[in-house]
């Protein structure tokens, strides 16, 4: 039986969870900061919606994956 079955592992090795969480969250927070800096420094009339969505999207991507690995690292069962 043992020969015909393969054990299933995580797609990302568990030892990478801390470093991934820290790195992704850092990038995410930096892009969040740049998003808000852009929001408050540019005036209402010459803000570019594309740039806003792009920065926001980038920030949410990194924050999303970063918080996933943070949850996994801290042992929340997800």
């Amino acid at each position: 039986m043992a020969s015909s079955v393969i054990s299933i592992t995580s797609p990302v090795s568990e030892s990478f969870y801390p470093i991934l969480a820290v790195f992704l969250l850092t990038v995410g927070l930096v892009s969040t900061a740049s998003f808000f800096i852009y929001e408050v420094t540019t005036s209402k009339f010459n803000r570019s919606i594309i740039r806003e969505v792009a920065t926001g999207g980038l920030a949410s991507f990194f924050l999303g994956f970063g918080s996933l690995f943070l949850l996994l690292w801290t042992g929340v069962s997800i």
Binding site: F35, E39, R47, I49, G57, S60, G64, L68, I78
Partner: peptide, 21 residues
């Protein structure tokens, strides 16, 4: 799961964009 988180964060940013616009 990660995409749900990403969507959650993006909703927040979209709300911010909407608020400022």
């Amino acid at each position: 799961e990660p995409l749900l988180l990403v969507a959650g964060f993006f909703a927040f940013f979209a709300a911010c964009i909407a608020y400022t616009h």
